[in-house]
Design a protein around this nucleic acid. Structure first.
Length: 461
RNA sequence: GCCCUCAUCGUCUAGAGGCCUAGGACGCCACCCUUUCAAGGUGGAGAUCAGGGGUUCGAAUCCCCUUGGGGGCACCA
C-alpha cells in the first residue's frame, strides 16, 4: 500500500439513466486503479439531474455492479437511495441544486454569463440556416449584448431566460495524461453555451465543473468522448476562479466491428455478464487489459496485482474492440482458480435459476455439486455453463438424439446390440461397488467374445 | 460542414532510433496427452509495423502529407 496522498482526488460520476454500462465500469476501474496505485481518494458521485430518465433501479444496478466488481470508493453514496458519506456531501447532484444556482448567479454578476431569451424555434432556425450554408452549428449571439432595457422588456413580455456562458476568443490547451498536448481554438466550440435552462435546471457541462471544483477533484479521468468538451470545462473552471484539474482521456471500447459501442452490437450491461456467469475476477481482468497493459507478458492478474502495476502512461491511445472470446478465456482461467467451497456457492444461483425456468427438474445439493467439481471446474467458460454441461443429471427424463450415440466405426444396430449386451453383463454387479475396476473386466470379456473393439463399446456407453 | 484525435498479426497488445529475421495472449490449424468433451503441453499459419515522402550511418519508433477509423459540435449526459 502506498502512503496516502491527499492531493490526489479522482471520481466516477455516472448518471442513473440506464443500468451500469461496460464503459462506465471501465472508466470507474481506471479511476480506481489510478487512485489506489498512488494512495489517492476515489469518489463516487451521481449525476442525477436528468429527472425524466433517472430511476432508482438504475441507481441500484450501478452501485450493485460496482460492488460486485469490488471497485470501492472512499466518498459518495454507498447504497441506492442511501446516505452520502464524505466531507463534500451531498454527492448527488439533485441535492446540490442550490450550489449550481449560486455559481450561476456569480457568473451572471461578473458578466461571464448572460441571460438568453432565444426561443427554441429561433435556435432551430439558426441551426437550419447554418446547415444549409454548410457552416458548423453555433450560437449566433443574439442575446449576447442586450442592454438592461432590452432585457427588462423581454422579461416584461413574460419570457424566461436561459443562462449562457460567454466563450472568450483564443486557444485553450492542456496536457492530457494519455494523449499529451491538446489545443483547441474556442472559435470551434459552437459559441456561447447554455449552462442553466430557462426552467432553472443546470446543464451537464456546468454541473460537472461546479462539482469537480467543489470536491477538489485533482485528476479528471474519463472517456475520449469528452476531449472536445474539455475546453468548455477549462473555461468554466477559470471563470469560477478554481484551479484547473489534470485531464486524462481514456480510449473508448468499440464494437467488434470497430464502431462506437452500442447496445445493438455488443452486450453493454454489466449485470447481463454477471447473469451469464462471468466471475468478477475475470470480468475485471478483461476490462483492465482493454486499453492498458503492464508491459510484461503477464495476462492473468488480480485486482490487487493490477493496482500494483497500473501506470496511466501505459494506457493505449486508440480505441479497443470488445472481444468476447478473450473475455471467456480469462473467465475460465479465473473459474479454475476458485476454491471449491466458494465455487459451489457461486454455482448455486445458476443451478437454481435453471430450475426456476424449467431447464432442469430439481436442484442438486451442495455435496452433489461439490462432487462434480473435479469433472466440471476446468471446463466451465462461465458459471452458467454448468447447466449445459451436466444439467442432464438433474432432469426427470433425459431425451437424447440416438444418432450421437453411435461410435464412429459402428452402425445403429451394432450400437443397440452392444449397449444391450453390456447391460446384461453388468446386471450381475448391481448392488456391488460399481467402481471402474469392477466393471471393466466383464466388459472386456464381452468385447472379446463378440470380436468388437473395446474403444467402440466404451464410447457408446 | 467544422474541430479534435487515433493508426503494430483477425482481436487485445509488447515496442519510447540500433536488443525486431517485430515478442506475448485470445482465436484458428496440427500433433501429444486422453477409451468422450474440455483443460494442459508442443508446434504452426498469421503484421512488407495503413500508404507515401522526408530526418538519420540506422525508423515500427522522430517530422510532413495522404488514406482509413473514432470522437465532438444540444435549453442530453
Amino acid at each position: 500500500m502506498p502512503a496516502p496522498d491527499p492531493s490526489i482526488r479522482v471520481r466516477i460520476a455516472p448518471s442513473p439513466t440506464g443500468p451500469l454500462h461496460i464503459g462506465t465500469a471501465r472508466t470507474a476501474l481506471f479511476n480506481y486503479l489510478f487512485a489506489r496505485h498512488v494512495g489517492g481518494t476515489f469518489i463516487f458521485r451521481l449525476e442525477d439531474t436528468d429527472v425524466a430518465r433517472n430511476t432508482v433501479e438504475n441507481e441500484r444496478d450501478i452501485i450493485d455492479g460496482l460492488h460486485w466488481l469490488r471497485i470501492t470508493w472512499d466518498e459518495g453514496p454507498d447504497a441506492a437511495g442511501g446516505d452520502d458519506i464524505g466531507p463534500y456531501a451531498p454527492y448527488r447532484q439533485l441535492r446540490r441544486l442550490e450550489r449550481y444556482a449560486a455559481a450561476a448567479r456569480h457568473l451572471l454578476a461578473e458578466d461571464a454569463a448572460y441571460p438568453c431569451f432565444c426561443t427554441p424555434e429561433e435556435l432551430e432556425a439558426d441551426r437550419k440556416a447554418q446547415e444549409a450554408a454548410k457552416q458548423p452549428p453555433r450560437y449566433v449571439g443574439r442575446c449576447a449584448n442586450l442592454s438592461p432595457d432590452e432585457r427588462a422588456a423581454r422579461v416584461a413580455e413574460g419570457r424566461r431566460a436561459a443562462t449562457r456562458f460567454r466563450v472568450r476568443p483564443g486557444v485553450v490547451g492542456w496536457t492530457d495524461l494519455v494523449r499529451d498536448r491538446i489545443e483547441i481554438d474556442t472559435a470551434n466550440l459552437g459559441g456561447d453555451f447554455v449552462i442553466v435552462r430557462a426552467d432553472g435546471t443546470p446543464l451537464y457541462h456546468f454541473t460537472v465543473v461546479v462539482d469537480d471544483a467543489a470536491m477538489e477533484i485533482s485528476h479528471v479521468i474519463r472517456g475520449e468522448d469528452h476531449v472536445s468538451n474539455t475546453p468548455k470545462h477549462i473555461l468554466l473552471f477559470e471563470a469560477l476562479g478554481h484551479a484547473v484539474p489534470v485531464f486524462g482521456h481514456l480510449p473508448l471500447i468499440l464494437n467488434p466491428d470497430g464502431t462506437k459501442m452500442s447496445k445493438r452490437k455488443t452486450q453493454t450491461a454489466v449485470s447481463d455478464y454477471r447473469a451469464e456467469g462471468f466471475v468478477q475476477e475475470g470480468f475485471l481482468n478483461y476490462l483492465a487489459f482493454l486499453g492498458w497493459s503492464p508491459g510484461t507478458e503477464e495476462d492473468v492478474l488480480s485486482l490487487d496485482e493490477v493496482v500494483e502495476r497500473f501506470d496511466i502512461d501505459k494506457v493505449q491511445k486508440g480505441g479497443a474492440r470488445f472481444d468476447r472470446d478473450r473475455l471467456e478465456w480469462l473467465n475460465g482461467q479465473w473459474i479454475r482458480r476458485i476454491e471449491p467451497d466458494d465455487l459451489v456457492d457461486r454455482l448455486r444461483p445458476f443451478v437454481e435459476a435453471a430450475a426456476g425456468d424449467g431447464r432442469i427438474d430439481w436442484v442438486p445439493s451442495d455435496e452433489e455439486l461439490r462432487a462434480l467439481l473435479p469433472v466440471v471446474q476446468e471446463r466451465l467458460p462461465t458459471l452458467g455453463a454448468i447447466v449445459d454441461l451436466v444439467g442432464f443429471l438433474w432432469v426427470d427424463e433425459v431425451t437424447v438424439d440416438p444418432a450421437i450415440l453411435v461410435p464412429k466405426r459402428w452402425d445403429a444396430a451394432t450400437t443397440r446390440e452392444g449397449l444391450g449386451a453390456a447391460r446384461e453383463a453388468l446386471a450381475a454387479h448391481d448392488g456391488v461397488t460399481w467402481e471402474a475396476d469392477e466393471l471393466e473386466p466383464p466388459l472386456r470379456e464381452l468385447v472379446e467374445a463378440r470380436g468388437w473393439k473395446a474403444g467402440d463399446l466404451f464410447m457408446a456407453i
